[in-house]
Amino acid sequence: MSENTLQLTKSENQKAKPASDQVPFGTTFTDHMFVMDYEEGQGWHNPQIVPYGPLELDPAAMVFHYGQSVFEGLKAYRTADDRILLFRPDKNLQRLNLSSDRLSIPPIDEEEVMAYLQQLVSLEQDWVPSTPGTSLYIRPFIISTEPNLAVGPSRKYKFMVILSPVGSYFAGGLKPVIIHVEDQFTRAVKGGTGMAKTAGNYSAGYQAQASAKKKGNADVLWLDGIEKKYIEEVGSMNIFFKIDGEVVTPELNGSILKGVTRMSIIELLRSWDIPVTERRVAIDELHRLYEEGKVEEIFGTGTAAVISPVGELNWMGRKMVINNHEIGELSQRLYDTVTGIQTGKLEDPFGWVVEVK
């Protein structure tokens, strides 16, 4: 731990909190946010919790011009006995540093930031909704702030954490979604930034997602950027297939995000002695197995949706209807178990949850 002392400035104007069962995803924010600065030669310093509000940045701040930014997403949950739990926050902070390394951003002290994060959530604990399926979404992010138009890593950064009470990520809740397999645009390539949570990875997918949604799809399943053959991930989540009793997910190859929920699902399946394999999965192989009646379930995993069952895949004019558009038995079991651990309804044998005091 460094000798940085956290400064707290409380908001004088408390916002009205939305009804616990009426929280859309990502549009409502709490009263406070965390801010910390970095300057070359001084390191990370001046950690503060301050009233939520606008930022003042120089128009030449490098984030506006060269996109040097990373972010994370995790959640806080309210239990039936009114405790506040975080789900594997250490893994999110580890991944934030992994993304920062790829974007040439200096690393944070994970232990120190964990303490700051818990203090922020503790201060804002009344914002954690209690309705089933809701949570407090936590968004840590780092942006480059040096005013400089020269191409190169910034020498100044700002690290922030904002909080947002949220409901279900998909409007339909835990219902199978329709996914379009993208065969034109490219999300990422090996050696690029696909393994990092950086802003440009997401905006680069907007055109494909907009086109897919016009055709009634909820999201896009990306293929590899070279051959357009191997399955990678959905825009907002990793992807899993239950094929003839075995669970298969694309292996991490440098262009796929190392999902915390993905990791948890793999560990959970192995604890249940359900065979799970990480390997390359070709889209034509998946279609062949579908035609043979061996594709039993498909589901996505991510912080926002936790488990999102897939009821249909559309690829090159071919429609693959999965489990008659109904949630599969394994998908339901995984969702119930992970959310049960997250909300304190089920025992946590893995040590995944951290209680906020």
Rank of each mutant, 00 (worst) to 15 (best):
A171E: 08
G205H: 04
T337Y: 04
Y38H: 00
L86C: 13
L98W: 02
T261M: 06
T186Y: 11
N13G: 11
A305L: 04
W222P: 00
L120T: 05
I108W: 00
K10D: 15
T27M: 06
L163H: 03
R155L: 08
I307S: 01
K10N: 15
V177T: 05
K229H: 05
L98G: 03
T249E: 10
R288Q: 07
V220Q: 07
Q94I: 05
L55S: 14
N217V: 05
F87A: 01
I143N: 03
M237A: 04
K10I: 11
D109Q: 09
P24E: 11
F25C: 12
S154E: 06
K214N: 01
M195V: 11
Q125S: 13
M36P: 04
Y290R: 02
V338D: 01
F87Y: 02
L223I: 09
K214D: 09
G192K: 06
W272I: 13
E246S: 13
Q7M: 15
E39K: 05
L313G: 04
V128G: 09
D90L: 14
L120K: 03
V321P: 00
A199P: 15
S144M: 08
T79Q: 06
R262H: 10
R95A: 02
Q184C: 14
E329L: 15
E355G: 13
G133T: 02
F299Y: 06
F64I: 06
T249Y: 12
H45E: 14
G302L: 12
I327C: 12
G167I: 07
L93V: 03
G200A: 14
E182G: 02
P47F: 06
E12Q: 05
D109E: 11
V356M: 14
G152Y: 03
F240R: 05
M33L: 08
V70R: 00
I327G: 07
T198W: 05
E111P: 02
G152T: 04
E296P: 12
F185S: 13
A76F: 06
M36Y: 03
S20K: 02
G302D: 08
N4Y: 02
K91N: 07
G194S: 12
E110K: 11
E112I: 10
E111F: 13
V281Y: 02
G41P: 07
S135P: 09
T27K: 10
F141H: 06
S255L: 10
L55T: 06
S135C: 10
L221A: 03
E329N: 15
V70F: 08
H325L: 15
T27P: 00
A115Q: 13
R102I: 15
Q209M: 09
H45V: 07
Y137I: 03
E3P: 09
S203I: 15
F170Y: 09
A212T: 03
